[in-house]
Computed example of a mutant assay.
Amino acid sequence: MILFPLALAAAVQASPKPAAKTPPPPSAALPADPREARYQHCVVMAERSPATARMEASSWTLAGGGYFAQQCLGLAYTTERQWAAAASAFEQAARAAETAHDIRAANYWSQAGNAFLAAGDAAKARAALDAALASGDLTGFARGEAQLDRARALVAAGQPVAARVDLDAALVNAPADPLAWLLSATLARRMKDLPRAQKDIAQALARSADDPNVQLEAGNIAATAGDEATARKAWSEAARLAPPDSPIRAETAKALSQFPSR
C-alpha cells in the first residue's frame, strides 16, 4: 500500500504553542530604569485582566511611560489574541527603545515579529525579526527563538533554503524547544530529506510526545517512509491528544481511512 501523509497545512508557519512569546532579556546588562516597577505591575495585570492593563498602559503612555508602556500594551493585546494590535504596540516599543539606544529594542522587535506571524503578516514579521537579529543584542535561547520565527516567515515567503539556515541555527541556540525540532522535521520532509526528517521528529517526540502536532508530523514522516504501522500509531495518538474541536481530528481520520479496518 502507498501511504499518503497529511499536508499538515502551514505547519512551519503556524506555531502549535501560543504566539507572541516573551523572550528572556538579552545577555547584556539592562540599564536601570525607574519605570521598571510600574512595568512589572502592568505585566501581571496584562495576564490577569488585559482590558484593565490596556487602560493602564494607554494612560501611562500619555504620562511618559514610553516603550515600557507600549510593551505592556502589546502583552495585554496578546492575552486577548489581538495579534495585529499586539504587533503594532511591540513595534512602537521597539522603535522608541532604538531611539533611546536601549538594548530592550531587540526583544521588542522579536515580540513584534512573533505577533505579526500570528496575525498572518509574514512580510512584516520578517522585517521585525531581521531588526531583532541584526542588533546583536539577542543571544542564546532568545536568539534561537527569533531565528525560529524568521524561519517560519521565510517558509511563508516561499524561501525554504533560507529557512533551513535559520532553523539549523535555532536548533543550536534553542535546542530545548520542541517546536524547533518539529518545524525542522516538517521542512525536511517537504524538501524530501527523509533521513533528516526522521532524525528531527525523534528529537521532537523526545521533548513533547504529548503534543498532537508532533504526533501528527511523526505519522506524516512515517507515511512518507512507507511505514504503515508507525504512521497508524502516530496518527491515532494525535487524534487522541487533540481537543475535540481541533482540525487534527478530521485530518487524522482522513489519513487513517486509507488503511483497511481492523
Rank of each mutant, 00 (worst) to 15 (best):
residue 144 G to D: 03
residue 63 A to V: 09
residue 109 W to T: 03
residue 107 N to G: 09
residue 112 A to W: 04
residue 149 D to C: 06
residue 183 L to R: 14
residue 147 Q to F: 00
residue 201 I to V: 13
residue 95 R to D: 15
residue 231 A to Y: 01
residue 133 L to Y: 00
residue 181 W to Y: 13
residue 215 Q to P: 10
residue 112 A to H: 11
residue 218 A to L: 13
residue 64 G to P: 12
residue 68 F to V: 01
residue 219 G to K: 06
residue 97 A to L: 15
residue 193 D to I: 02
residue 64 G to Q: 11
residue 190 R to M: 12
residue 154 L to D: 09
residue 260 P to W: 00
residue 214 V to D: 10
residue 167 L to N: 04
residue 142 A to C: 09
residue 140 G to I: 02
residue 213 N to T: 10
residue 144 G to H: 05
residue 133 L to P: 01
residue 80 E to V: 12
residue 195 P to N: 08
residue 181 W to S: 13
residue 178 P to K: 01
residue 68 F to I: 05
residue 177 D to I: 02
residue 79 T to I: 12
residue 25 P to F: 05
residue 238 A to R: 07
residue 56 E to N: 15
residue 224 T to V: 05
residue 67 Y to Q: 02
residue 30 L to W: 04
residue 230 T to M: 06
residue 20 A to Y: 12
residue 128 A to D: 07
residue 216 L to Y: 15
residue 120 G to T: 00
residue 179 L to Y: 12
residue 217 E to R: 01
residue 220 N to H: 14
residue 119 A to Y: 03
residue 192 K to F: 09
residue 246 S to N: 03
residue 218 A to C: 04
residue 214 V to F: 08
residue 85 A to R: 15
residue 222 A to R: 08
residue 96 A to T: 14
residue 55 M to A: 15
residue 180 A to N: 14
residue 223 A to M: 06
residue 120 G to E: 13
residue 65 G to K: 01
residue 211 D to L: 02
residue 79 T to C: 08
residue 176 A to L: 08
residue 245 D to G: 07
residue 100 A to R: 09
residue 214 V to C: 11
residue 33 D to V: 02
residue 88 S to T: 14
residue 21 K to E: 14
residue 75 L to D: 12
residue 16 P to L: 02
residue 166 D to T: 05
residue 246 S to L: 00
residue 175 P to E: 06
residue 252 T to E: 00
residue 117 L to D: 04
residue 37 A to D: 10
residue 155 V to W: 05
residue 5 P to Q: 00
residue 43 V to H: 03
residue 236 S to I: 09
residue 74 G to R: 04
residue 20 A to R: 09
residue 130 D to T: 05
residue 242 A to H: 01
residue 218 A to V: 10
residue 189 R to F: 02
residue 81 R to W: 07
residue 162 A to Q: 15
residue 193 D to C: 02
residue 45 M to D: 05
residue 213 N to V: 03
residue 166 D to Y: 08
residue 91 E to Q: 08
residue 232 R to Y: 04
residue 201 I to T: 10
residue 106 A to M: 03
residue 262 R to K: 10
residue 137 D to H: 11
residue 96 A to H: 04
residue 76 A to I: 11
residue 207 R to M: 14
residue 239 A to M: 09
residue 226 G to P: 07
residue 36 E to W: 06
residue 21 K to A: 11
residue 122 A to V: 06
residue 185 A to Q: 08
residue 69 A to D: 01
residue 181 W to I: 00
residue 71 Q to P: 11
residue 112 A to P: 09
residue 181 W to F: 10
residue 218 A to T: 05
residue 198 Q to V: 04
residue 54 R to Q: 14
residue 154 L to W: 14
residue 185 A to E: 12
residue 79 T to D: 12
residue 220 N to A: 15
